[in-house]
């Protein structure tokens, strides 16, 4: 009963949006990549590295903006490495992504130790965080104000990016090219467009999104970097993208579903269930979500076939 009442509270909505923000950012990146025909398994590592560099950049410059730029630069660098090895040197995307993740897991702790002398967190250095935003007028409206106002700047930005990427993919020539490369690379090659260039662009856009998702974790969700803090969110974002059929809105909804279980696991910590089971919840939900999606897709294909025979 207490769990139910907590779920239907403003605090829960607040937490739900907090845990959803990194998933929305990163899964939007996954959408752009997937649309161009690339599965970016390196999202996890890109998020983690950007999370650290954002913290370090802001701590050393004393400027949030420089922190943001540092995180983006790191994310774009790793994305460029991924793109170069995958697109030019023809490395398998799963191996490429795993390599990026391995690198990032070591690199972040290595850097953290050099800078702070510790391997666990960046708590000893003072870094910046993205501010929360109170929306004028709306914040004073009861219910609506509590629901919509007072969230982190990046949370709003994440939802805005869903719209921006939808526009980019469906209403601009670049989006058309990205989608065309993903649908049929030979066709787009035959009209004289470089498949590699389009995919490179998609991977870089994805890198920006994943970097923002990572930076939100260390400069919004928490106010410091913690080793391995991404904890599978890059992979869960890929799952959200698969469940959302690589459409921006569908993927956002899937990310919200996964985030719901993430938030739920935060609440259930208070109950007498062993905490290990509670911690499993987001990962188990992701597997269940993927399975349900796949079953439904198979059924859709069957129906489609049955229809075309009739």
């Amino acid at each position: 009963m207490t769990v139910l009442s907590t779920i239907f509270s403003f605090q829960f909505v607040d937490m739900w949006l907090r845990v959803a923000t990194p998933l929305i950012f990163t899964s939007m990146g996954a959408v752009v990549c997937e649309r161009s025909g690339v599965v970016n398994l390196g999202l996890e590592g890109i998020m983690l590295s950007a999370a650290l560099m954002g913290v370090l950049g802001s701590a050393f410059s004393g400027s949030l903006f420089i922190g943001l730029l540092s995180g983006l630069a790191m994310g774009l660098f790793l994305s460029a490495v991924f793109a170069y090895f995958h697109l030019v040197l023809k490395a398998n995307e799963v191996l490429c992504g795993t390599a990026i993740n391995t690198f990032a897991g070591g690199f972040t702790v290595f850097m953290l130790e050099i800078v702070t002398g510790e391997k666990g967190t960046s708590a000893s250095i003072k870094s910046m965080a993205f501010p929360t935003v109170d929306i004028p007028i709306i914040q004073h409206i009861p219910v609506l104000g509590q629901l919509l106002s007072g969230h982190n700047l990046l949370t709003y930005f994440a939802f805005i990016m869903v719209g921006v990427l939808w526009y980019l993919l469906y209403k601009t020539p670049i989006g058309l090219r990205i989608r065309a490369v993903g649908e049929n690379e030979h066709a787009i090659h035959s009209v004289g467009i470089s498949v590699t260039k389009v995919r490179f662009l998609a991977i870089m856009i994805c890198g920006v999104m994943a970097s923002l998702g990572g930076m939100y974790l260390s400069m919004g969700y928490l106010n410091m970097f913690v080793r391995d803090m991404v904890a599978g969110r890059g992979f869960i974002s890929l799952a959200a993208n698969a469940m959302g059929h690589a459409t921006p809105v569908g993927t956002m909804l899937s990310a919200l579903v996964f985030a719901f279980f993430d938030g739920l696991s935060n609440i259930l910590q208070a109950l007498k269930i062993p905490s290990e089971f509670v911690q499993m919840l987001p990962y188990a939900a992701t597997i269940v979500g993927l399975v349900l999606y796949s079953i439904q897709r198979i059924n859709a294909v069957k129906r489609h076939k049955a229809k075309s025979f009739a």
Binding site: A91, I100, G106
Partner: peptide, 15 residues
């Protein structure tokens, strides 16, 4: 781990 990542990238690079 930094080295392992680089090793994996280079070996995976078929081209």
């Amino acid at each position: 781990y930094i080295i392992q990542g680089v090793i994996m990238l280079m070996i995976a690079a078929d081209a």
